[in-house]
Design a protein around this nucleic acid. Sequence first.
DNA 1: ACCTGAACACCGTTCAAGT
DNA 2: ACCTGAACACCGTTCAAGT
Lengths: 190, 190
Amino acid sequence: MALRAAEQILADEGSAALSTRRVAGAIGYTAGTLYLVFRNLDDLILQVNARTLDDLQARMIEQTNLASEGLARVLAVARAYLNFALERPHRWTLVYEHRLPAEEPTPEWYLEKVSLVFQLLERMLRPVLEDSSEAEVSTAARVIWTGVHGIAVLTVSHRLHVVGPVSPEALVESLVVHYLKGLRDHAPFR
Amino acid sequence: MALRAAEQILADEGSAALSTRRVAGAIGYTAGTLYLVFRNLDDLILQVNARTLDDLQARMIEQTNLASEGLARVLAVARAYLNFALERPHRWTLVYEHRLPAEEPTPEWYLEKVSLVFQLLERMLRPVLEDSSEAEVSTAARVIWTGVHGIAVLTVSHRLHVVGPVSPEALVESLVVHYLKGLRDHAPFR
DNA sequence: ACCTGAACACCGTTCAAGT
DNA sequence: ACCTGAACACCGTTCAAGT
């Protein structure tokens, strides 16, 4: 299948090597044939990314189920997201770097998959923030999601070690633990 | 100048339109001529990014000086970073999405500029975390930097609104305020 | 019905040749 | 000394033509 060949090229050589001619060649066809299956290269990439998002979601659910109590589950989702990114840097990078041409809107089914990954975190967070309003849980889920994403982005692009040695796992733990602690402390800042 | 033309194309049409032929054409030259000034396209992009990092640093210093006390200064650096990204999405995106070929190492002077942006945040953070060790301040600076970066990345790529309406400014404030509050509370999580 | 291969409009990069 | 323009090896995409 074309998608599997694309994932292989991606894993081995990164997104710069991902071309219609390369993918077609890898499965014994000519570039033109791909256009009988996919609308264009963007469509092919969207399908590759859909599988990546599915795999990510599955991994997050799997890892989260190994942890029992509140905070441990939040940490487990966050770590699963980070580890997925670190283990498949090229596939994961393609998901958030790929941009459709401005005129083409992102398909609904794709946005749905992005949203599912986020909702999983939101669900794990609710029991930890019992005393908080719905809006506060919502904001907290966004902060942790974007924060873990940022750690993963800068680690994968090798920008993090530029400012000294540091473990991304330690950053995720510090972020989740201290942010949630601060959220539950309703006193003013100083 | 070639760099100014490159910035114009980038701002107007994004990084996909940034080619040697386009840049050369915009300044009345032929593609080959650019190779008398730049080693190749990657080198040109590196120079564009260097200017972007300089502008970002200047903007951060400027905004930070408007705020006086501890927490306000940390918030000011964080907001300056976010706003810079939102106002120049294409230029800012190129800085963190551009990858040199694996064999070519990133030049020292470039890593220095990345590191300066981070150090500015670290300096603002120290007075707020008087009771913390050097290592704790160091981790905190990395968590806030990566966190704000993640908020900016997902906002610029339009992934944030996918999970419902949300203001990136509010996320930055929630992250900084609650994370720092949690950091100063030395009690165990529950 | 399925696939090819040539064509078109683009790339980055090099380099002999022109002024 | 400075720049061009052709050449080479690549792109994505389309489509008449082949089997």
